[in-house]
Every structure is written in structure tokens, then in C-alpha cells.
Design a protein around this nucleic acid. Structure first.
Lengths: 106, 106
DNA sequence: TTTACATGCAGTTAAATGCCTGCATATTAT
DNA sequence: ATAATATGCAGGCATTTAACTGCATGTAAA
């Protein structure tokens, strides 16, 4: 898993919206997804390509259509390997911050 | 919380490294952080500004120094409000993907 | 086979990004 | 007061990004 690609892919609101749409109904075609987006089909294709390069989306061709499916694994791995590190220290980090903001750190 | 700012801020590897450094030792000065980065102080300042705008980092002035502290709250909120949505459906999404890749979706 | 539909691909462009240099300001130490 | 240190701020520049237009290809339906 390329954590950098995943984070970059998630950094754009249009791409997060695409994931949201697929979360509502998995397996949508490019055209279906475009109906809910305020951009051209070509732009959406680029975003989906970035999501696919990050393995967040996988595609299957069905005739002249292309179906898009969420792959939740990279998101889960990013959470496990990165977010949880901060989560584990969450309370102590909050404590650092609070005491410093209160001026007790002098 | 501005989820967009948080995701954008996390989209850059240098900024994730800054958070990593602060996770190792909270409350570091700009100069200390720069010792571990391969960029000028001014660039680091910009990155820290973006992290601060996303409320991922809070700062406290101490004399001529500026101390940087992680604020874990936005990260936690992003996880709660966004990542968990996918996490909840993780197994069913994986099932969709698997059956489609196997060609059972016809 | 002709027409309509769904997607692919190339090239352009405006804006955003990330990095830099140079100088200014503020604080501490001598 | 002077020098050294830590950070702030402004501007420039190359690259990347995200959007578009226009045309090509492949598939399904009439």
C-alpha cells in the first residue's frame, strides 16, 4: 500500500465525494457518478483514475460500461498504521496542549 | 471543524512528517523541527501554518521561540465522521468487490 | 449497417502549490 | 549597546493540479 497516494487521493473534495457516492451505491458507472457531480465526464475520469491508482477504487468493465467499486482496504490500513498512532496518544497530547495553553508549562 | 482543510493538510508528506515529529516529542520549536526536515525554515513555516489553519497544530510563544503542539481532536473527528462510515461497511464493500472481480455479478 | 451511447485519450490553460531568496522584527546573551 | 539567535513576512519561480475542449474508440440497439 502506498500511503502517500492514498492521502493525496483523499486530499481532494471531489474525490471524497466520489467515494461517498460509491458508498451510497457501490458499482456505479462513470455516467451515473457524473450525474451527481458538477464537472465534465473527463474530469471525473481523472479523479477516478487517481482513486484507482491509490487502490481506493477498482473497476470492472461490463460491455460499454465501466463499474466502479470501493476498495476499503487502503483506507483501513491508513487508519491502522497512521491514525491509530495519534489516537493512542490522544489524551496525553491533549493534556500537553491544555497545560501549555494554560501557561503551566513555564 | 473544517474537514476539507484537515484532509488537504494531511495530503502532503512533509506535513505528515511534521506531525510524526511532534508525535515523537510534543512542543518542539520551529528550529528543532527544521533539523529533521530537508527544506528551508521558511518552507517549514508555511507547512506549519497550514497544519495550524486546520487546527491540527497549536502554537505557544515562549520568548523568541514558538512551541508547536499536536491537537489530536480534528484527526479524531475526521475518523469518527468520515472513515468510520466506510469502516462500518467494510466487509460488505469488500464482498461487492470480490464477487464482481470473480465475474459473479453478471 | 447505421445510429446512439459509454468511455478513452490528447492537448490547453488558469490557478494552486511548494520551494526558494532576501530582508525585517523581536528576543536573548555578552 | 551590540551581537547572536529565533522567527515573521514579502515576492518570485517552477511544477503540479484540476478543470476544460475536441476528437477517437468501442459497444449496443434499431
Amino acid at each position: 500500500m502506498d500511503a502517500d497516494k492514498v492521502f493525496r487521493a483523499l486530499g481532494d473534495p471531489s474525490r471524497r465525494k466520489l467515494l461517498d457516492l460509491l458508498c451510497e451505491r457501490n458499482g456505479q458507472t462513470l455516467g451515473e457518478l457524473c450525474n451527481h457531480l458538477d464537472m465534465t465526464r473527463q474530469s471525473a475520469t481523472q479523479h477516478l483514475g487517481i482513486l484507482e491508482a491509490a487502490s481506493l477504487v477498482s473497476t470492472v468493465r461490463r460491455g460499454r460500461e465501466k463499474l466502479h467499486f470501493i476498495n476499503p482496504v487502503p483506507l483501513h490500513e491508513v487508519y491502522e498504521r497512521w491514525v491509530r498512532k495519534f489516537e493512542r496518544q490522544r489524551l496525553s497530547l491533549l493534556h500537553d496542549l491544555k497545560t501549555e495553553l494554560e501557561g503551566d508549562g513555564q
